[in-house]
Design a protein around this nucleic acid. Structure first.
Lengths: 104, 104
DNA sequence: CTAACGCATCAATATTTCTTGATCACCGGA
DNA sequence: TCCGGTGATCAAGAAATATTGATGCGTTAG
């Protein structure tokens, strides 16, 4: 089992990425840290909504947040995609032609 | 924009991977093609339930199915993870230290 | 000190997704 | 041809998620 490690942490991460708004957020953060107001404006999402999605990303450990004065800055977590790469990386191409030998 | 390609296809794939049962299915398919009854047994899931999850994976184009007699065989789609790798691969590590210059 | 701002959180509602049990269609063996 | 087995699909209910608007808390400017 390649990825028996922590299935539920993995599903949490994938779930966090299964939403367009959140994907956009991630994409914006690729350029570096952003404050919430920047994101709100760029994504034209209500403040409350954005805050919710940021929380989902944070809970999945994909982003980190930092408080500075009255602003909150979010950034990609350093090793955010490590676990995902591990899972996705196990390239299946090699064994693809293997057919199920025998059924039931 | 690195991944402007097709956000909704991407979210669909991520969503398909955001469930433990489906992750287990993927993992089993790494070893090659499997028939549904094998999967049902190995995952101890009801037939209907499994069929539902297989459909989710198939709709996300992560797996393909093949009919043979009265059995159905599922396998990882050849390029299943290509798009995911593209997204996940854009390693953020380099720009991580970039702080937001100015806010709102 | 007070008012405005940035943001998190909560409550209520809408929406989506999952599970279960039926049912149906198809195929192969007797 | 009839029957049992495999698996898809549907309908109904349960559960998880998302959206909205309201409220609250800390911070900064005046």
């Amino acid at each position: 089992m390649p990825v028996a490690t922590d299935l539920s942490a993995l599903t949490t991460k994938f779930h966090a990425l299964s939403d367009e708004t959140r994907l956009r957020i991630i994409d914006m953060l690729r350029g570096g840290e952003r404050c919430v107001c920047d994101l709100t404006e760029a994504l034209d999402a209500g403040q409350s909504r954005l805050s919710f999605h940021l929380k989902v990303l944070k809970d999945a450990k994909l982003v980190t947040d930092r408080r500075e004065g009255r602003w909150a800055y979010y950034a990609l977590a350093p090793d955010a995609f490590a676990q995902l790469e591990e899972f996705v990386g196990e390239l299946p191409s090699t064994k693809l032609s293997v057919l199920a030998s025998r059924c039931c």
